[in-house]
């Protein structure tokens, strides 16, 4: 095996890769969130934002392929860590309990595989709803572009879709509550002093991301914008 393959297959390398891909996806999600906020500035703002992105051409495809690779690799690592865990303890405890204290076992950390798989399924339906959709067009300032604003409004006026979306964003928040802190530990960026600080920052960041994403569908559904 090559050096890189040996590194990535080691228990430490796998964690570093989970952390790098996880943080990469978090960066993307933050950019995505900021993009969504353009909806609040009106149809022209969000439509132009989407139009500008599409003008990037090959660059856009490079970013898309990179994202896809990160996403698939991250999901595969998460899945294989979980499979490994099942293999490493063939006979379960009759009684198992967490000691608390320094332990980071929580709803969030104990459901990473579940929230992860649901996010994976969500992303597929999400791409189908928005990315591969045949948008109507609209003209802003003499330029013809996709009417993303109309599509968003249409989708989030459906109660079922709105509820589905909000639930998934809560799960995303849960994934990131453990995930963001965990990634720093995985990359070795942790000391006794920074451990509690990063754990708190991860909570705040997860909360901001979840609330940020939930804001748009709720505002549309209750016609606040």
């Amino acid at each position: 095996m090559s050096k890189a393959a040996t590194f990535l297959n080691s228990q430490v390398g796998r964690k570093i890769a989970t952390g790098v891909t996880g943080l990469g996806l978090v960066l993307f999600i933050i950019v995505h969130l900021l993009g969504n906020l353009a909806y609040f500035a009106g149809p022209e703002a969000i439509n132009t934002y989407s139009y500008t992105l599409h003008q990037l051409g090959p660059m856009l495809w490079i970013v898309r392929l990179g994202l896809l690779a990160f996403f698939v690799y991250h999901a595969w690592l998460g899945l294989s860590i979980w499979l490994e865990r099942r293999r490493a303890r063939p006979e379960k405890y009759e009684v198992y309990a967490t000691r608390g204290g320094a332990s980071r076992q929580s709803w969030s950390s104990n459901s990473m595989i579940l929230t992860g798989i649901l996010l994976l399924l969500f992303v597929i339906t999400h791409l189908n709803t928005f990315a591969f959709y045949d948008f109507a067009t609209i003209t802003h300032g003499g330029v013809e572009m996709h009417d993303v604003h109309a599509r968003l409004t249409e989708v989030f006026l459906h109660p079922l879709y709105t509820v589905y979306y909000v639930v998934i964003m809560v799960l995303l928040g849960m994934h990131l509550r453990h995930g963001v802190w965990s990634a720093f530990q995985s990359l070795g960026w942790m000391s006794r002093k920074t451990n509690p600080i990063i754990y708190s920052i991860a909570f705040v960041l997860a909360l901001i991301i979840a609330i940020g994403f939930i804001g748009l569908p709720i505002s549309i559904y209750f016609q606040l914008v």
């Binding site: 228990q11 490994e84 608390g100 320094a102 332990s103 980071r104 995985s186 070795g188 942790m190 000391s191």
Partner: peptide
């Protein structure tokens, strides 16, 4: 198994070893 950063180990360790040793191991490996 692999480590998922649950930190349950630190909570039960009778010698109070901190998980910063795991972070250190990862830096050393890199």
């Amino acid at each position: 198994g692999d480590c998922s950063n649950y930190a349950e180990c630190e909570a039960v360790c009778p010698a109070e070893i901190s998980i910063t040793s795991i972070a250190k191991m990862r830096r050393e490996y890199f």
